[in-house]
Design a protein around this nucleic acid. Structure first.
Length: 332
DNA sequence: GGTAGACCTGGACGC
DNA sequence: GCGTCCAGGTCTACC
């Protein structure tokens, strides 16, 4: 069997693949496939050269290099693009100092080392995934992402590490999604009324910022204020206050907490708040204000800890069983 | 500025 | 197996 290309990737000293991949629900969404038995991640990446299957492991444990096995060789330029995508997804670009800053404000998570939140290799995928998580229960989000990959994304069928890969489709690119008819998305991907909005978002990614397109550089620029970014995000189709706040945390801005029905359940069951949903939401908001620019991480890891207390460590969750049930809606 | 209702799907439930 | 109800965030119309 021909040997597949491998990249050994240096990570920050605190990085733990099992803990840091399984830190946010997106690790359960296609095209990601977390294998709880081996503690490794499979994923098809969309690169300028086409789809590429990767298997990511950390064989020597936390803090040690990642071993990334690929389905094909990469030219130097594409290799750089690939490493940028992995770094974004795993938040390897977040420094140990930034992790310490979080633990200074909220020491509860210092011992476990929780700080990094898994996200997507691209902002485009993060935004589309956020829209598929709105106004739907978690199994619906899982289903929409799976179908989007299968119906619209590139397919790659290869054997890697002597086994058939558990994932064979890439996430759709903006170019691919922009060309799909909304009716096709609705009928085959079951995205419902989100059909037109998803296509419009993809088109906005293709359009230049000077012609009203999405200005990704400005969104990722630390000089852009939180308020300006929020205003830009809520102006996008399908993005309201909840989705905008969630996209902001995915961009590394943790001051705003995306409050939803899950937050209300958390406020009632864990924080002991009472009253109407609006009253509980207000109390949850005030509770997390104490964590200032780290509010979202405190909020999220508090909820995550609760999920794990019910279902065991997230890295043991199977996508098609526990992974479908982990939200508070199923913990009642 | 605040509120009500439609949007759409999948799951739960009753028959 | 079928019909009904409900959860979920965004958007629009209306007050």
């Amino acid at each position: 069997m021909p040997r597949k290309p491998t990249i050994n990737l240096q990570v920050p000293a605190d990085f733990d693949l099992r803990r840091d991949v399984c830190s946010y629900g997106y690790f359960l969404l296609a095209p990601n496939y977390w294998d709880p038995h081996s503690g490794t991640l499979w994923r098809v990446f969309s690169l300028s050269s086409g789809p590429l299957l990767a298997h990511i492991a950390q064989p020597k444990g936390a803090g040690e290099k990642l071993r990334v096995t690929l389905s094909g060789t990469l030219a130097a330029k594409v290799r750089t693009q690939f490493i940028q995508q992995i770094a974004r997804m795993l938040r390897l670009d977040e420094s140990t100092q930034q992790v310490r800053a979080f633990h200074r404000l909220d020491p509860r998570f210092k011992k476990a080392g929780r700080a990094r939140l898994f996200r997507s290799p691209t902002l485009f995928e993060d935004i589309i995934k956020t829209v598929t998580s709105c106004n739907v229960q978690w199994p619906g989000t899982i289903s929409m992402n799976k179908r989007l990959c299968e119906v619209v994304g590139n397919r790659i069928s290869v054997t890697l590490l002597g086994t058939k890969a558990p994932t064979a489709h890439a996430f759709p690119t903006p170019q691919q999604l922009a060309k799909v008819r909304p009716a096709t998305l609705r009928a085959r991907c079951r995205v419902g009324y989100r059909d037109q909005r998803l296509v419009e978002l993809a088109r906005l990614f293709l359009r230049s910022p000077t012609r009203g397109g999405i200005d990704q550089v400005a969104m990722e620029d630390p000089a852009t204020t939180d308020d300006a970014l929020f205003k830009t995000l809520v102006a996008l189709p399908g993005i309201g206050p909840y989705a905008a706040a969630n996209i902001m945390q995915l961009l590394g801005r943790y001051a705003r907490v995306p409050l939803d029905t899950e937050s209300v359940r958390h406020g009632k069951s864990i924080l002991g708040y009472t009253g109407t949903s609006a009253q509980v939401m207000k109390q949850v908001h005030m509770h997390f204000e104490q964590f200032k620019e780290q509010a979202f991480r405190s909020y999220w890891f508090e909820m995550w800890q609760h999920y794990e207390s019910k279902h065991g460590p997230a890295w043991t969750w199977e996508r098609d069983t526990t992974g479908r049930l982990f939200t508070a809606a199923h913990l009642k």
